[in-house]
Design a binder for these strands. Structure first.
Lengths: 346, 346
DNA sequence: CTAAAATGGACAATCGGTTGCGCAATAGGA
DNA sequence: TCCTATTGCGCAACCGATTGTCCATTTTAG
């Protein structure tokens, strides 16, 4: 239970003042060579490490970044956290972690906790329920910058990182088209999610682009629950003309959808083929992996979000009057095809 | 960009001293009723919140707990984190998060970073490579308590939480026996993991318990990589007498093993049935879910680890001479059977 | 009516560093 | 030799709260 050595300890032993020790350790030019030597030598011997708490306290900074995500359990988010973490370590920042469990109320509480802890900044992926932003705008008052990722808000005066799913969806439709599929259905997510809106726009534009007719009967939505997805599938499977391909909102929806299809005697990926978003590594082990998937680069989104936050914080330090610029980073998604689908026989 | 109100701010406005404000806010008996009223009123108006950084700094505490795990991406660990997080929130502690990626070197670095940040305590699940504990024992010097979970060290002078896999494995063997299986193989993990040793002991004792002969040809090990598992499977499938059932080290091994088996024309869960450890929710979506699994309660392990840490920290506060007692919490695993296996026809 | 006790607050030290300012002592220039 | 730089270092304030000690009233008891 050794006491951790402090600057004072060193000062006393060397019979100099604490300020001298402080400056000697930071190589201040006004400190004589001999003194510097002795101080640094003793510091090493004692295994001195500056108390970052004390320093940050004086600097009125915590060097802690809050991160709020819906579910750590989702592979997408755990990868994002990894990205954030690695960028954070690089910048010597620390992560304060919280989950919203996709509930607005929990998100509000988490944000309040972060505020209380006086985080230097916040990175957040919004909950499914989030429809107002007062709890987040409140942070502006306290000068805590917020960077959104993936589940970003609609307002333009915010920093954000996301994957351009509009383009991704067009790619997915194009890939299906090129492989001979025409009657393409789509199970989308909740309407109010930006991600849903983008996908829908991409779907419509993608379909149109290939001179196909957009049939809204082929578009269903799910609240992302198993039941919601099954309802959507039920409707699609009851259409007079069965879809040849189904695009699902993400891999979780994909898994529920394919499981439901299989139960209802559909030859998954033969009779109807399935493609998806997210590209979870786990899907390769599933009974019915998607034949193509749009990779949304969660790790890079996390990294990027942290980079943006670091830039903002640095600008604040240098006292450059931060112009009201808002950083927006739009990552290009990439299509990953797992297997050539049967180009005929469907 | 309002300045956050401080105690001093309130003091100045009310023309009293900061100490009076401090005591008024904490309801100190020596402060007069009128003064208390005025102080608390103004504090509310200004939206005053105590600066926890400052308080913790004075208390020489950070209220931050370090958590180091191999991979956040593994469902087991992300669930554990959730458990830790919820317990942490309850106790008003904050989580500083790091991954070892199952490498000793990274683990050492992460521990050093935690030490530098002066965490109040550390919760860790050891990396696969960890064979020495000097980096962790170093924390004792600085009076930072360490609680291990799941991947716990062999030494007895440590606090730990884990699932009794010895018993779990016996249960699993018993379940197989009761369902008519006799020729039971086992793909174990790396020898040096405590978890492997326990499972092996459980396997041997479980087999013996039912008057079966232990045949070490039926026991293989994997380094947990896909390749390692495939090697193990290859050996098992080349035995003259094919096993009727295979117990795998965890669900990831299970998935690789069943995939390999399927590729080699084994009717998974018919010809050979598979049972496993971990009970990942995702397995229900896989092509070949295990027919039974030992749930290791990651969430509860995390929660429990945090509880133990809180107890230790509380004891330190109350200055009770901490007797050299080491908390060990052994959780009982539970067997989850998904489907009745075919009791004949294999 | 006076001495003692209770009441209500102010002062100042402290946690571990950082940093502006001032003061000697030495060095250099005229 | 005297005056001014320069060098080297100490003093003290500060970040935001907590807390022991002390002082000045007021109240109470004898």
């Amino acid at each position: 239970m050794d006491k951790l050595p402090t600057i004072k300890e060193i000062a006393v032993r060397l019979n100099v003042s604490v300020s001298t020790v402080s400056r000697a350790l930071s190589n201040h030019p006004r400190i004589g060579f001999g003194t510097k030597e002795r101080v640094q030598q003793l510091a090493k011997e004692l295994g001195y490490e500056p108390n970052t708490q004390a320093i940050f306290f004086k600097q009125k900074k915590t060097h802690v970044i809050g991160v709020i995500i819906p579910y750590i359990r989702e592979d997408f988010f755990s990868q994002a956290i990894s990205g954030i973490e690695s960028a954070a370590i690089e910048h010597e920042y620390t992560i304060l972690f919280g989950q919203s469990y996709d509930e607005l109320e929990r998100e509000i509480k988490a944000v309040a906790a972060m505020k209380k802890q006086r985080v230097d900044g916040l990175i957040i992926s919004l909950s499914k329920e989030t429809n107002k932003y007062t709890h987040l705008e409140a942070l502006k008052k306290y000068d805590i910058p917020v960077v959104y990722f993936d589940r970003v808000p609609t307002m333009t005066d915010s920093h954000k990182v996301f994957c351009n799913l509009y383009k991704g969806t067009i790619d997915l439709v194009g890939w299906l088209f090129n492989n001979g599929y025409r009657n393409i259905a789509f199970i989308n997510g909740p309407d109010k999610l930006r991600a849903s809106k983008e996908r829908l726009k991409g779907y419509i534009d993608g379909i149109s682009k290939h001179q196909l007719k957009v049939d809204m009967q082929l578009v269903e939505t799910t609240d992302l629950s198993k039941e919601g997805t099954e309802m959507a599938m039920k409707k699609l499977l009851s259409l007079k003309k069965l879809p040849q391909a189904i695009i699902t909102f993400n891999d979780y929806v994909h898994m529920d959808a394919t499981q439901y299809a299989a139960k209802n005697n559909i030859a998954v990926n033969k009779h109807i083929i399935f493609v998806s978003f997210a590209n979870l590594p786990i899907t390769s082990y599933t009974a019915f992996p998607p034949l193509a998937s749009i990779e949304q680069h969660p790790y890079r989104q996390g990294e990027k979000a942290m980079d943006i936050l670091m830039t903002i914080l640095k600008n604040k330090d240098t006292q450059e009057l931060v112009p009201d610029t808002y950083y927006t980073e739009e990552l290009a998604p990439s299509l990953v095809a797992y297997k050539q689908p049967l180009s005929s026989g469907h």
